[in-house]
Write a protein that binds this DNA or RNA. Structure first.
Lengths: 200, 200
DNA sequence: TCAGACCATACAAGCATTTGCTTGGTTGGT
DNA sequence: ACCAACCAAGCAAATGCTTGTATGGTCTGA
């Protein structure tokens, strides 16, 4: 007999996929049950509520992300290397939790308004602080441009990066590391101090 | 007596706001009715269905966007100027239809899967073609970098730009044109051919 | 070794509420 | 008299979740 399927993990995975694709509200517990090969009512043996499922999906995602960001901050590399670290961490963490990443971006308003998910606000604020710290350090070093405010730079970079989960599918010829290289090359040049225009 | 309120326009505006904030599925026609100062059943005097409301919101957004993009493509400016045009058009169109822009980004999977909204697929494909045309022209001109493929460059820029509707709120000191200037400066430098690294 | 207790897991059925939408009637302006 | 605009009421379906029960495995004690 095959090893008993870890139903809880299956439910989490299928639910995450459905939440990411259709949104929380449009995904019914019956659909989750169907996808997991179980009756909808049986889900409630493993989870207290729909929100509990969401919680399990989202919290592990942010835990991983914050751990990675903390490592980057702890290193005493220069701003450019830290930028590289943030890009790598963001893309690898998104690759490890693709559904959670999409789910958050899709339903973050719902998560924000639900008291149970207050920790998401904190996590997002922490990530923002991390990025701003790195960007402002780059400015202080004289490595990053000063003509655009960091608070404008940050969300542009963040959304360009985070949203890659919606369109990027790694292949043998071009995997997540390749994407990270390109993203870093892109944003590093975008952030660099301007070379004085040579042409008239 | 005040001029009679254009109830249809009110419904559209309130619905768009709710759809953008909560998502299509989580927004009920009763909520739309409440927001519009009307009973939910009365909405059906103005619109055939919930989808009809969505249609009205979304289609006008893409009509405007495509019209702007066509103008940019029609000009015989160089790639950098066209890039500027695309950034300006995108941000101004998003500013004119903020709710529709958020709505699409949030529920594009639903729109994609609903036959009625097939035109959205076409519009998005057309926008993608426009961006790729401009980027590839820049590469051909020798103005844009060649180390990152245009098909990777495009979605990064697109998401950084389009998602501004989620966080940017124009003020007197910094309005949509200021944001457009910064975005253009950012992406233009990111796209520029690499200056040969001076350091070892 | 094995009956018996126990428990995790699941099913079957259904309940209360919410949902998009319909129907029939009222009102006020022209 | 007519009609656009709206209300009041409610319907059938779908929703999150609950309840009661069945099943198959494991542990215990004699």
């Amino acid at each position: 007999m095959a090893t008993p399927p870890d139903r809880r993990a299956i439910i989490l995975d299928k639910a995450a996929e459905l939440f990411a694709r259709k949104g929380i509200s449009a995904t019914t517990v019956r659909e989750i049950g169907d996808a997991a090969g179980i009756l909808s009512g049986s889900i409630y043996h493993h989870f207290d509520s729909k929100d509990t499922i969401i919680d399990a999906i989202v919290s592990s995602y942010f835990d991983d992300m914050l751990a990675g960001y903390a490592e980057v901050l702890a290193s005493d590399a220069d701003a450019s290397e830290r930028l590289h670290g943030l890009v790598l961490t963001s893309l690898h963490c998104a690759a490890a939790h693709p559904h959670a990443s999409e789910l958050y971006q899709r339903d973050r308003n719902h998560l924000r308004e639900t008291p149970r998910f207050a920790y998401v606000r904190d996590a997002v604020a922490e990530m923002r602080r991390t990025w701003l710290t790195v960007i402002e350090a780059g400015v202080a070093e004289g490595a990053f441009r000063t003509d655009i405010r960091p608070k404008i730079l940050y969300p542009i970079i963040r959304d360009g990066l985070w949203r890659t989960v919606e369109w990027f599918r790694p292949s043998e010829a071009y995997d997540t590391d390749d994407l990270a290289d390109d993203c870093f090359a892109f944003f590093r040049q975008a952030l660099a101090v301007q070379v004085p225009a040579a042409a008239a």
